[in-house]
């Protein structure tokens, strides 16, 4: 780890101010990606702005037919929330299967989606459920938030404050885990929402994306059989020692089928 200046603020405004003053600052939420990267000397920010002291960013509230989750809420807290378990059980289960207990007790929803790791779980839920990402500046629709591998619509001095998930009619997330890291090799989230049937795919491609052709097929008939004929193009898939593009494309369909079955 290289030397850096450390800041901890009790407010969103204070954190943003520290960021604006920094030469090459980084916000740190749970630090589950940032800190290992720094320890491996792969990142060398001039300033670390720790968000862990901002009480207003923590907590889960029910707002009508939606659940609002503060950006600094840990995966463990989401998994254990009675409100989440009742309204969107899929989301509680997803959070409860991220990483391991140590990761879940430190890692946060805001940190996860701001990092937008191609194999992270939360981005699939944000996209499939049509969630809204709230920041200190604005509200961003889930569909507009994830812009590329480790890229989001966030500006440098923009902080996620919470994520609002509308309650779906039904939803399921099926994750095919990397046997080593237990990140998603392929994760598919299928949701029946007021906005129609939405399918989000993580792990398979450089950035989480909607499976539009799968959605089309499922609109005709919401059954696993409807997915069988859908063409999932291999050429856009990630490939590594754990899974080839061909295998990932195959898994996208299998995980979608299983998620559909779990919804019905």
């Amino acid at each position: 780890m290289y030397e850096f200046s450390y800041h901890k603020s009790a407010s969103v405004d204070g954190a943003v101010e520290a960021m604006n003053k920094a030469e090459d600052g980084k916000f740190v939420a749970g630090g589950q990606t940032m800190l290992p990267t720094m320890k491996h000397r792969l990142a060398a920010p001039s300033d670390i702005i720790d968000l862990g002291g901002i009480a207003e960013l923590v907590g889960i509230t029910v707002e009508g037919d939606s659940i609002n989750i503060g950006a600094m809420t840990t995966h463990a807290a989401v998994a254990a929330s009675g409100d989440v378990q009742t309204m969107i059980p899929m989301l509680a289960k997803l959070a409860g299967n991220i990483g391991d207990p140590a990761v879940r007790n430190r890692g946060t929803i805001g940190g996860s989606i701001a990092n937008n790791d191609p194999a992270a779980d939360y981005p699939a839920a944000v996209l499939a459920l049509g969630a809204t990402v709230k920041t200190n500046k604005r509200e961003i629709a889930g569909d507009d938030f994830f812009t590329g591998m480790f890229e989001t619509a966030l500006a440098d001095d923009e902080l996620i404050t919470s994520v609002s998930f509308p309650k779906p009619t039904a939803a399921a997330y099926m994750k095919f885990e990397n046997p080593a890291s237990r990140y998603a090799i392929v994760g598919v989230c299928v949701a029946k929402t007021d906005d129609g049937i939405r399918v989000a795919v993580t792990g398979a491609t450089p950035c989480v994306h909607r499976g539009k052709q799968l959605e089309e097929a499922l609109k005709g008939e919401f059954s696993s059989a409807a997915c069988v004929g859908v063409d999932v193009p291999e050429d856009q898939m990630n490939a590594d020692i754990h899974a080839s593009a061909e295998y990932r494309a195959h898994l996208v369909k299998v995980m979608t089928k299983r998620a559909v079955d779990a919804c019905t």
Binding site: N178, P179, A180, S181, Y183, I241, H242
Partner: peptide
């Protein structure tokens, strides 16, 4: 039998150099 495979690429870089890629 099921998980562990230490892999080098053709240039001799160890691809499985962490628990992110080496499955215990």
């Amino acid at each position: 039998a099921l998980l562990e495979g230490c892999r080098y690429d053709s240039e001799g870089q160890l691809i499985t150099a962490s628990y992110m890629d080496y499955a215990m």
